[in-house]
Amino acid sequence: MTANSEIDMPAQTAGITHSEVTSVEPAIAVNNLNIYYDKFLAVRDVTIEIAPRSITALIGPSGCGKSTFLRSLNRMHEVIPKAHVEGVVQLNGEDIYRPDVDPVTVRRRIGMVFQRPNPFPTMSIYENVLAGMRLNANRLSKPDADEIVEHSLTGANLWGEVKDRLDNPGSSLSGGQQQRLCIARAIAVEPEVLLMDEPCSALDPISTMAIEALMEQLKDQFTIVIVTHNMQQAARVSERTAFFNIDGPGQPGHIVEMDLTEKMFSNPQEKATSDYVTGRFG
């Protein structure tokens, strides 16, 4: 890792070390976000900005709330009964938690890829890619549908492997291919942001490399936020890294530090961060 010349102006904000260089408008701006499961405060007081068309990694020990935080970014969090948040999450300047905002429209703008590949088992590869498009009630013409399928599968580096068997069930693919199919499904609706919740943790190293290479391409078009347990992965793929931690069992998770990835792994501001990235705990 080479030191980057543009990272020498740390700025302090609201209690957390937060040296961030964003000349452009953030894609997502989170302000004082508290996330609850019923009465239990799971994540407290997160304030970060996520830069557009780049990869932001969320790292931290198990149970520190990074997945919970990720799911709050597209309001998937509230799928769990009684789960709710306080605070502001802005997507390109719009508060997605405003009372009159339908979570359904938020999720159409912010796609998600899950830990375990989850193509719809009853659908063909072709129909899996179109699953999101089919939800937008208006009918797709066959040529349009074909084009979206090819475009999305190409975008997910899967077209070459499946173009001759688009009618096979999605579950006939290998785990890594299934995950790329899920990415194709997510990008088919052309979201603004792509959230990835440990997308490689169920995959072998070769498939993991394929997904990482794919993320590298996708960031030209999409804002990507990835949760990962794998610090090497965070170091390899992301521009910025946020470190989440937890003070103890039953305590809310919180963000310790967020910075450019090189800095986080070479010269973090907080001791907890350096302990974690050097493998001293977690």
């Binding site: 998937m76 359904v104 999720r107 796609g111 998600m112 375990r116 193509p119 719809f120 997510a186």
Partner: peptide, 13 residues
Amino acid sequence: RLHEEASLALGAT
């Protein structure tokens, strides 16, 4: 749950 969430995350009602 995985399949239900896959659908919801695509913006399904």
